[in-house]
Amino acid sequence: MLDEALIEQLNRGYVCPPDAGPAWRAACDYGFDMSLVEDALTQTPEQRLEEHQRALDRALMLNPNINSDAAE
């Protein structure tokens, strides 16, 4: 059943959990998509490095000049 509450939930995106601590809430309020952090925290450091490599490759494919020293 697609009631209004579910549609609202689907459209809303990440919602900071009510029991989030002050640092988590501050990061949410800053505008970070903390679902990305939640996903990362379910991974091992090695998996995070591989995910980062994929993101890096995507970024470099979209904008090869982003890796110049001037862009750092």
């Binding site: 998509d33 990362a40 980062h52 890796n67």
Partner: peptide
């Protein structure tokens, strides 16, 4: 990269 290993979802280029 150390941040990435700790779980930070930000891309770094070195």
């Amino acid at each position: 990269v150390c941040g990435v290993l700790h779980g930070v979802p930000l891309v770094t280029f070195d």
